[in-house]
Design a protein around this nucleic acid. Structure first.
Lengths: 176, 176, 176, 176
DNA sequence: AATGAATGAGGTTTCATTCAT
DNA sequence: AATGAATGAAACCTCATTCAT
């Protein structure tokens, strides 16, 4: 799985082949197929591994004391996720969107939206006309900003966090 | 080029092959190679063609009377672009981000950011500490929201325009 | 198709691969796939080609003047088929029996049985209690004897014809 | 060996792999290779095991009182063999014919022919011009009919025995 | 200028066999 | 004696590209 991750981030989507993964991992192609039923399964395992930490951190938002705190956690979890392995995170984002839907892999975006919705229903959160739509927009804003910053070459997580919060709270605080 | 577009939006990335494009276009593969040096060149031409209208519409922002009007135009141009051919726009977005960077193809994002910057420098626009950063964020927010809405199945350009404006103006109007 | 035939008869079933066929035919593997959609299609084409003459000759039985003459024709067509390319005929027999059933390829045996039935319904043919069963048995007897002789090393079509006729007429002439 | 048999008859020739056999047998692939030198050896052992009973029953023909009785025994032994495990018998038939010839495995047919010859030399058997040829034809007829019936879906051993006897005795009783 | 047959590197996957444990 | 992870040749097939016509 780590071999797959490295190929994706260092060589890009088009060099991601089962042979390349086996080579990188230092095992034979036959061994690769003893642990994964096929190419997609490798992608799937990588996706699950990479999103695992994001999900775990994002779910900490559920245990926050306030809605604003929950939102902060969602943002910082997303930023941390993106900054751990920027190129990889972006490529996997695309895979997630274009893979055959499955509860296992397709769900990160939906889960994030759901967490956002729960945060927005806290009493201290800015009241929204349609919480579902607001949650979706919120995640979309975060994603857009974090992805864009991630592709730049002078990433600054601290500053990014401040700006994303500004955007999200600006959106939420403004009447629809 | 139109054949390439149709294959992408109807059959997806994995069916996009030079032979398929030639077939769709009703010409021989040989002829295809007399007009394009290779597969990437076809993608590039499509990318330029598709972003052409977006750029033209977005540049109308330069001729707006006010900064707010310019921002509205940038947003509506982006939404119109996305809604013209939703699937195609999303796929090309990915290609744009992952193709070998070239001034020709990678430039749309940069151009949009530049237009946003000019809009933010109008006297009536909300004053920003760092106009370049704000312009980049603004475009990132737009992109994020428009892309996400585009993947849903009940797209509503009018409502989307309102929400994107809410997000952008919310961000811009809030102190950094 | 001829390359496929030669591989089967000279090297056997286990050496029959798309690469081997392409090699034998003196073309690249890519070219092979421009003419056949897959491995099975090559087998299918070979099967049709090889059984074509058998069927044509066997159908001459329909135009025979008497039932006995029709039977003679069925036998001689089968023998001629087997003696043209003995090993190939035997291997294709197996393929026919084990390929996914399709009217195109599965039908030879059934067609032969049907022709036999029509022959048995001629007025001069030995009367049978159950013509369908007799026809099936008749073809089975022919097949068994011709296959066995074909795998020997001193094949003698003339003598074989006489013996198969003896077997078939012996069976038909004997009360059930 | 029984695992091999089950795979062949339940899943067919294409699922017959050493790993599958080991799995079915509930042993490791390593253990399999301690008892059999290779894949072919497994096939060979199965072939010998399956033909063992056929041979034993067929050899009872030697102890029959009359030639006609011996012939009846040969036929019923063959039918019993086919009906015990129809699909398996047919698949092994093919293997037998296409494996590298060896006295061990290729011999069943020859043995049957020899038994038939001995039966034909009994005083009460229909006199034949060439006993060897007649014996070979006799076995070929039996094989052809039994194999064909075996591939149908309404097998009836009793009726088949009657028809095979009719064919064999019809052949033997008719002047060459 | 147009054609499309031909090419072959390279992709995914299977499976008979080995060998360190 | 038993295990099963590891191997890699080889199978099927695709597709970007070339080039003689």
């Amino acid at each position: 799985v780590e071999a797959a991750a490295r190929i994706l981030e260092e060589e890009g989507h088009s060099h991601f082949s089962t042979n390349a993964v086996a080579d990188r991992a230092g095992v034979s192609i036959g061994s690769l197929y003893q642990y994964f039923p096929g190419k997609d399964a490798i992608m799937g395992a990588l996706l699950r591994r990479e999103t695992g930490l994001l999900i775990a951190e994002a779910e900490a938002a559920l245990r926050a004391n306030t809605g604003r705190e929950a939102i902060r956690i969602l943002i910082s979890a997303s930023i941390a996720h993106q900054f751990r392995r920027p190129r990889l995170a972006r490529l996997l984002d695309f895979e997630e969107a274009h893979l055959p839907p499955s509860p296992d892999t397709q769900g990160v975006m939906l889960l994030m939206i759901d967490l956002a919705r729960q945060a927005l229903m806290r009493p201290d959160a800015p009241r929204q006309t349609d919480v579902s739509v607001a949650a979706r927009d919120m995640i979309a804003i975060m994603k857009g900003m974090i992805d864009t910053e991630g592709s730049g070459d002078t990433p600054d997580p601290k500053a990014l966090q401040a700006r994303v919060q500004r955007a999200v709270l600006g959106y939420l605080g403004r009447p629809a």
